[in-house]
């Protein structure tokens, strides 16, 4: 017999998970688990020292990721994943700091932190799982809810213009911007690997189904139906101008890698400026010695 139901320990991603917390709280058909699966495989392929990889999450369904990954992780207050991660990175620049959170947490509650971390080009890998709604709190309208979509707080259809997240990230200053969906597992794993190697503010938006709140309210079927929509409506447009990447309700989705550029990071500019001003008095910030 080829299929075995008793095999658990040898799953390649099992080493990255806190198995005692499984099964996780995510609903059947939710895509967050798929993104975590891809992230674990990217870590596996990247061959990083896992003692130096940190995952920071905010509040929300995606915020639970930090609690399920067997890495140093922190579950911050709502919207404050990026400030915490910034402090972590500045205090210990050797760490690879990943911010893994949802759209409501990152660009809704924590939107101010998001644009300023991108502006300063803090060396963070920001992963935003976009399910178009505030999932954990009951399906309220989010800054990413498409026009016309129903939510608990917009029962007659959303009338707020949603964020175009790749454009927001690029115009704020991110050096790596990509968008994939939870259907594009291989591309997503590759993008995670690229972001982990990239120096500077890297941003990956992942569209993901929310079958319980977003889809049921909008009568879009289950998680699998949403995955099929991602499959049929996605068009790979690497390098496309990010102003063209806005999303509409059940409309076409442009996916791909849109921005990959170089800019000095926050720590580099900090050290450069202070070394220039203070000269010999300056010993370098956070363990980085400028006067070598």
């Amino acid at each position: 017999m080829t299929a075995r139901t008793d095999a658990v320990a040898a799953n390649p991603v099992e080493a990255f998970l806190r198995s005692d917390r499984m099964p996780h709280i995510w609903c059947p058909g939710c895509g967050i688990g798929t993104t975590v699966n891809c992230f674990a495989r990217a870590l596996l392929q990247a061959k990083l020292n896992l003692d130096r990889v940190v995952v920071v999450s905010g509040i929300g369904c995606t915020g639970r990721v930090a609690g399920y990954l067997e890495l140093d992780s922190f579950h911050t207050t709502h919207g404050r994943a990026i400030p915490f991660a910034t402090g972590l990175k500045l205090a210990n620049p050797e760490l690879t700091v990943v911010v893994y959170s949802g759209d409501g947490d990152l660009v809704g509650i924590g939107g101010n932190h998001f644009i300023h971390a991108a502006r300063r080009n803090v060396d963070l890998k920001v992963i935003c799982v976009n399910n178009f709604t505030y999932g954990m709190t009951g399906g309220q309208v989010a800054p990413t809810t498409p026009l016309g979509a129903l939510s608990t707080t917009t029962p007659y259809g959303c009338f707020e213009q949603p964020f175009n997240l790749p454009q927001l990230a690029e115009s704020s200053g991110a050096v790596y911007v990509a968008r994939w969906t939870s259907y594009h597992v291989r591309q997503l794993t590759h993008a995670f690997g690229e972001a982990l190697r990239k120096k500077g503010f890297s941003f990956i938006e992942i569209l993901s189904p929310c079958p319980t709140l977003y889809e049921r309210r909008n009568r879009l079927g289950d998680g699998l139906e949403m995955m099929k929509y991602f499959k049929e409506q996605s068009l790979v447009r690497h390098g496309a101008p990010t102003k063209e990447l806005g999303l509409t309700f059940q409309g076409p989705i442009a996916v791909g890698k849109f921005v990959d550029r170089e800019r000095p990071t926050f720590l580099e500019t900090l050290n450069q400026q202070l070394a220039r001003t203070l000269e010999a008095q300056y010993a370098g910030c956070a363990g980085e010695h400028v006067r070598d």
Binding site: A3, R4, T5, M22, P28, G29, C30, G223, L224
Partner: peptide, 17 residues
């Protein structure tokens, strides 16, 4: 060879589809 942990599965059907 496929290994399935039937205890954890939530029946979303992604693998089947």
């Amino acid at each position: 060879v496929v290994y399935i942990n039937g205890l954890r599965c939530k029946g979303c059907g992604f693998c089947i589809a």
